[in-house]
Design a protein around this nucleic acid. Structure first.
Lengths: 230, 230
DNA sequence: TTGCAATTCAAACAGTTGTATGAAACTATC
DNA sequence: GATAGTTTCATACAACTGTTTGAATTGCAA
């Protein structure tokens, strides 16, 4: 085991390079040069390039999921096993948005790496993402407890849309800034989280009164959505 | 010019292979084998591999944008220069969702290619996507006409979220199916479009009228969005 | 110190990649 | 039917990829 110096130098260098230039054009030789280690060290310590990438992503994913679940658990305990829906959603999208948005120059390497992983989606990472479903199920369960009269289908769509808005904002933050001529303030992370949560809550609670009526179809009848839906 | 047979055979083969296996592991040799043409034909007809990819994507993008704008224009003409917001949003996300969702086995090659392009995002495609802003601006303008009392910022966020939900649904349709154990019907394209449009309209019109109904619960605590906004 | 395992190293390997070349095969025009 | 221009073809190229090898070095325990 020695000091693990080489191993961690490789991890750090790889994460930095991937964060800066993407997975597409970073070679093992780039990494070992940045880390000042020998080319063979990567295969010696990690087995293969893909396993190196996987280890990087797994580490960051675990940290993110732990953060999410800690927020969720704290909220549910405080509420006696049931947290308000907006707090649940905040626990879901807050950590990601908080880490990946905000002033670009003060974004951590880890955050920039995760942004890349979200945009480029290379095979070893995709394989890991597929195991994320169990984690999301825990949030679906919490949401079900918060909104007991909503159908499972509605819960899943709400969860799905919340993630959609969060991830798409991260992926396309640059484009949104350009499109809006800077009128959308992408540095106001708290405001963005509020926005995403608020819209998600609307999606989940629209048409609540009339029980199981699917809100989507009747809500929009080729015209405006009716006020009673709120 | 002759018959262009080689040229179009390359285009067709490339689109098919990219749609099936992604950009990552399709080589020029795979393409020319599929197209039954010589290896050098690609560089002869397109200049480079990237230019081939670019031509494929540009073609499909133009078609999509044309379809969107036709729907928008028709709606605005019918309404005397002003279309209802939900119809505008439907023109924005409808064509994409209609093309890319629905029973997987009856999805066109073009649609599957565009899904890949949306997921993998390789350099030549990203360069083209950056020019899509002008197109989106036309929708922002139409939305502004439909909702004259909403600020530009709100318009852009609404547009952004609509695209977020549409694209994320396309990208992650498989995961949503698995997560929801099939309870979310990804083959009901019309229903999905209704859902996306309905939520987007809510996001755009929340707090518009003085309807007392709170959309969520104390929706947002850290709240930029205060109760009076709704 | 000796012995032994863990680690580092330079070098080579085996394969793939996109691209370039120059001759051959076409096609249409005169 | 010769000619000029276009298109196809087999082949070579040069660069780069992740991985492997086997020897050198290191660090630690006996």
């Amino acid at each position: 085991m020695a000091s693990d110096h080489t191993r961690s130098a490789i991890l750090a260098a790889a994460e930095r390079l991937y964060a800066d230039r993407g997975f597409g054009d970073v070679t093992l030789r780039d990494i070992v040069a940045e880390a000042n280690v020998n080319l063979a060290a990567v295969n010696y310590h990690f087995g293969s390039k893909d396993e190196l990438i996987a280890e990087l992503f797994v580490t960051r994913s675990i940290a993110l999921n732990r953060e999410r679940l800690a927020e969720l658990k704290a909220a549910e305990e405080q509420g006696g096993g049931r947290a308000p829906i907006d707090v649940i959603l905040r626990a879901l999208v807050g950590p990601t948005l908080h880490g990946c948005l905000g002033p670009a120059n003060q974004r951590s390497t880890a955050a920039r790496f995760m942004i890349r992983a979200s945009i480029e989606s290379v095979p070893p990472i995709r394989r890991i993402k597929n195991r994320e479903i169990d984690h999301l199920r825990k949030f679906a369960a919490a949401m079900r407890r918060a909104l007991p009269d909503r159908s499972d289908e509605e819960i899943y769509w709400g969860l799905h849309f919340a993630l959609a808005m969060a991830h798409h904002t991260i992926r396309e933050s640059e484009r949104l800034t350009k499109l809006s001529d800077g009128q959308c303030d992408l540095d106001d992370v708290q405001g963005i989280i509020d926005r995403v949560v608020s819209v998600s809550v609307m999606a989940l609670t629209a048409g609540k009164a009339k029980s199981k009526a699917p809100p989507a179809r009747p809500a929009v009848l080729h015209g405006r959505l009716t006020r009673e839906d709120f």
